[in-house]
């Protein structure tokens, strides 16, 4: 797009927090959160699959709630706290969900995995899943073309069981 046309549509100031780090940015209003993360900030852990809210590969946490980053215009997120897969753990110190995914071999190609993991954390935050059937239904927004669903459900089931025993021990 030529500069004259871009000038007619000025950028908008945007302040938000990503993985605990504050950012002050200028974004075009049509930039999605997904493109902001991947192209502008080079946080490429979040993946672009369908770019239309049909696959869940771009799932991130916005204020702790899982959402499709491809359908959120970044400019609408003034003041929001975003968590992506980069903000969850490190190879040395993995998040319990990441650990469970590794232990259960809950992926093959790995492209959907960051979305699956963020979605799982959203599911845990929501607190509506207690059975395997709940997990299957409440993870239906994340597609896996390798078909690792069985192992993904196993991994999440283990995290849920660990959480339950942790809570019991604390009581």
């Amino acid at each position: 797009m030529d500069t004259a046309l871009e000038d007619r549509f000025p950028t908008c100031p945007l302040s938000l927090t990503i993985n605990g780090k504050p950012y002050t940015l200028d974004v075009h209003p049509w930039t999605t959160l997904l493109d902001l993360l991947r192209s502008d900030l080079e946080l490429t852990g979040t993946k672009k699959g369908c770019d239309h809210g049909q696959c869940g590969a771009c799932t991130v946490l916005i204020e702790g709630q899982r959402m499709n980053a491809c359908l959120k215009l970044a400019v609408t997120l003034e003041g929001a706290a975003i968590t992506t897969v980069e903000g969850l753990g490190t190879p040395e110190e993995m998040h319990p969900v990441q650990k469970a995914f590794v232990e259960h071999d809950a992926f093959q190609c790995g492209y959907c995995t960051p979305g699956q993991i963020c979605s799982t954390i959203g599911l845990l935050n929501e607190g509506h899943a207690s059975t395997r059937e709940d997990i299957r239904e409440l993870m239906s927004g994340n597609l896996c073309r390798c078909g690792a669903y069985t192992n993904i459900a196993d991994a999440i089931e283990e995290v849920l069981a660990d959480r339950a025993s942790y809570r019991e021990a604390a009581e």
Partner: peptide, 9 residues
């Protein structure tokens, strides 16, 4: 309807 991610938004 939809998915948990979509229902949240």
């Amino acid at each position: 309807g939809a998915s948990p991610q979509l229902r949240n938004a």
